[in-house]
């Protein structure tokens, strides 16, 4: 039997991302070959299709790329797409009044504890 390829040993990228999040750390990937930042994590780089990626702490800085208020009988909550300072986009929620969230607004991430923990954002300068 051929040995497994050691470049892909260890937990997969989704498991590593979740494990970091459980420790309160929001990570993204950095491509060792082309320097691209990547989220959501994967085994290969979607920019250069190479196979060498490192998990790094995200800066947590970003801006609202788009936003919606989801309404139901239980109330209203925010769902946004955040463009991270490193480049990738992610779905997340912006805390506070959902209707106050604006496209272009600067936001900062924190990891909200819970089962599972979640990356959420607050408007910059907000308490």
């Amino acid at each position: 039997m051929m040995p497994e390829d050691p470049r892909f040993d260890g937990p997969g990228p989704d498991a590593r991302w979740q494990a970091a999040l459980s420790e309160g750390v929001f990570t993204i990937q950095h491509c060792d070959a082309c320097g691209a930042a990547q989220f959501p994590p994967a085994v290969t780089c979607r920019a250069c299709h190479g196979g060498a990626l490192s998990m790094v702490s995200a800066s947590g800085k970003g801006a609202v790329y788009s936003t919606t208020t989801v309404r139901s009988r239980e109330g209203a909550h925010n769902v946004s797409i955040i463009e991270l300072a490193e480049g990738p986009r992610m779905m997340a929620s912006v805390e506070g009044d959902p209707e106050a969230v604006r496209i272009g607004q600067a936001v900062t991430a924190r990891v909200a504890p819970g089962e599972p923990p979640m990356v959420v954002f607050a408007a910059e300068g907000a308490e």
Binding site: D14, F39, S66, T67, V70, S72, V79, M90, I103, P116
Partner: peptide
Amino acid sequence: QPYEAPYKPRYPISSYALAAAR
């Protein structure tokens, strides 16, 4: 969709709403 589900978008309308808002 583990990277979107925690934020409770209403599927599929919230996705189209995000496109419309942009």
